[in-house]
């Protein structure tokens, strides 16, 4: 009896917590199809007519910023995946002097809090002439995001049997061939994890683009914040914009859920 009772209270508490968790997001959708005037005069009421025009108006405001974000994300993901797997391969399959030290030097970077580097990284970017340029985002992003790839790829490549590589060596394959034709195709699931984690981190970043880029080159996160500033005049429009801009992250997470959670937990626990 008491067991049944505690199960019921447990369920009730869970349902309440879940509702509170989701309420902001229900409001997000609800207001995105509601007319501004209706929001002001009748906060709780259902929309009289569903105002899809919010979406087409918002699309015109955010589309170029989403394109900019996607460009930065895709180039960063390619860089992170290539560098991470290349270095991971070398650390897993090669023997050379100073290997241990170099590995610590590389992975130790994960201990550096990003806050420490914000100011001097900006100075570095400025010196290289990358302010208000996408390179000012992409290059530092690659530097940081390749490390998860090194970590995961090294572990994976170490688990492969040496015969696999020996056979290819006897057939005359050089080291680059071994990496690109033997190792790389085998670690695609791992690269998916690295790619997804990288994509989401880069797409969601607001601070660094805000520091580096001017308004005309803005990423989606910058556009979202400025929508909000002007959004006092039209909540429905800004909310529709937030939803449109969230589509890339939603798609990436939904189709890569398994890889995403794996990568997030490993990344957090290992660093």
């Amino acid at each position: 009896m008491t067991a049944r009772l505690s199960k019921w209270t447990g369920s009730a508490v869970l349902v309440i917590l879940l509702i509170i968790t989701l309420v902001p997001f229900i409001i997000l959708f609800f207001f995105s199809i509601k007319d501004q005037f209706e929001i002001l005069i009748d906060f709780w009421g259902m929309p009289e007519v569903i105002k899809w025009a919010n979406y087409s108006d918002a699309w015109n405001v955010v589309k170029s910023s989403i394109g900019n974000s996607l460009y930065v994300c895709i180039v960063t993901v390619i860089g992170a995946v290539v560098l991470g797997s290349l270095s991971g391969y070398v650390f897993a399959r090669h023997k050379f002097p100073l290997k241990g030290l170099l590995y610590i030097l590389l992975i130790g970077v994960m201990m550096i809090p990003s806050l420490l580097t914000i100011v001097p990284l900006y100075a570095t970017i400025a010196k290289l002439g990358f302010t208000n340029s996408y390179l000012g985002l992409i290059l530092p992003y690659i530097a940081g995001t390749q490390l998860l790839g090194v970590l995961l790829c090294r572990t994976f490549f170490e688990s492969l049997p040496e015969e696999l590589f020996e056979a290819a060596r006897i057939d005359g394959g050089n080291e680059f061939y071994l990496y690109s034709r033997i190792a790389l195709p085998l670690c695609l699931p791992i690269l998916a994890t690295v790619g997804i984690v990288t994509f989401l981190a880069v797409y969601s970043d607001y601070l660094w683009p805000f520091i580096v880029l001017a308004q005309e080159k803005q990423t989606f996160t910058m556009a979202a914040v400025s929508l909000n500033r002007s959004g006092q005049s039209d909540i429905g429009l800004s909310f529709a914009g937030y939803i449109i801009g969230s589509v890339p992250t939603i798609l990436v997470i939904v189709f890569g859920m398994k890889y995403y959670i794996e990568g997030m937990v490993t990344g957090a626990v290992k660093s």
Binding site: V90, P120, T124, A143
Partner: peptide, 24 residues
């Protein structure tokens, strides 16, 4: 060849992580 393969990764972390830390 091992060192050569590691050059890109290290170039990135020295320029965009270690160098800024030293600057800081």
């Amino acid at each position: 060849i091992s060192y050569l393969f590691l050059v890109p990764s290290f170039l990135f972390i020295f320029t965009f992580l270690y160098y800024p830390v030293i600057l800081a």
